[in-house]
Amino acid sequence: MECIDIYKSIVDTVDNVKTPFDILYAVTLVNFTPNLVLSAYLGLIKLKTYNGDVNIGFLSGYMIRIMYYLQDFAILFVPAISSGLMAHQVKELLNRLQNRLLQERSEDHAATIELFISYVSARPLELTLYDVIKLDWSLPIAIFNLCVTYQIVVVQLTHMY
């Protein structure tokens, strides 16, 4: 029963910080996503005006821009990737509990394991943003697709190429 109490306290703690986290992460997504599109657009402008001369100024400026772009991506998606890792660990826990249940000989221990499995299944540790957007590995891909789509729209509207 101690394991159930520990898991319950972890899930309760996550539930307690969910509302402030949702607000802060939503604001971060809304602010950083257009910044990613703008950074890519400015990189395209710099690349278009590049005259072919290989100089240290151009390369260092371009590398710094790429580093800022990667930093924005990391800031934006570390919570989503961490949430995906937590959900994966809960699934691994359920698998191990199922395997342990198959090997258990004592009926008391088996009942406790079944209770723990049912509790973890009822309260999985999966985070969502406002109960709409699932925070896992698919969020960075979705935001990247959104940025690419809007980058294409911006390039077409500005007649850059």
Rank of each mutant, 00 (worst) to 15 (best):
A80P: 00
A80E: 00
I81H: 01
S82G: 08
S82T: 10
S83E: 01
S83Y: 01
G84F: 03
L85E: 06
L85C: 02
M86T: 07
A87S: 13
H88M: 11
H88K: 15
Q89S: 12
Q89T: 07
Q89W: 04
V90S: 06
E92Q: 14
E92W: 02
E92D: 10
E92T: 13
E92I: 14
L93W: 01
L93K: 03
L93Q: 04
L93H: 04
N95A: 14
R96Q: 12
R96K: 12
L97I: 06
Q98I: 11
Q98A: 13
N99T: 08
N99P: 00
N99V: 06
R100T: 13
L101A: 12
L101W: 04
Q103N: 10
Q103R: 12
Q103H: 09
Q103E: 14
Q103V: 10
Q103L: 14
E104G: 04
E104L: 06
R105A: 11
R105Y: 07
S106N: 15
S106L: 05
S106M: 05
E107Q: 14
E107S: 15
E107L: 15
E107Y: 10
D108K: 13
D108H: 10
H109C: 09
H109Y: 07
H109A: 14
H109S: 15
A110L: 05
A110K: 13
A111V: 05
A111E: 12
T112R: 08
T112S: 14
E114F: 01
L115D: 14
F116V: 12
F116C: 15
I117E: 03
Y119I: 09
Y119T: 09
Y119M: 09
Y119D: 08
Y119V: 11
V120F: 06
S121G: 07
S121T: 14
S121M: 08
S121H: 02
A122Q: 12
A122R: 08
A122T: 09
A122P: 00
P124N: 07
L125G: 03
L125H: 04
E126G: 02
E126S: 11
E126L: 02
E126C: 05
L127C: 07
T128C: 10
T128R: 12
L129A: 09
L129N: 04
L129I: 07
Y130C: 11
Y130D: 09
Y130I: 07
D131G: 08
D131R: 07
D131P: 00
I133R: 02
I133T: 11
K134M: 04
K134P: 00
K134T: 11
K134N: 06
L135Y: 05
L135G: 05
L135C: 08
L135W: 03
L135K: 05
D136T: 03
W137F: 15
W137Y: 15
S138W: 05
S138N: 10
S138G: 08
L139N: 02
P140C: 10
P140Q: 06
P140M: 06
A142E: 08
A142S: 11
I143F: 06
I143T: 08
I143Q: 01
F144T: 13
N145T: 12
N145S: 15
L146P: 01
C147I: 14
V148K: 05
Q151H: 10
Q151R: 02
Q151Y: 12
I152S: 07
I152G: 03
V153M: 11
V153N: 05
V153P: 04
V154L: 14
V154M: 10
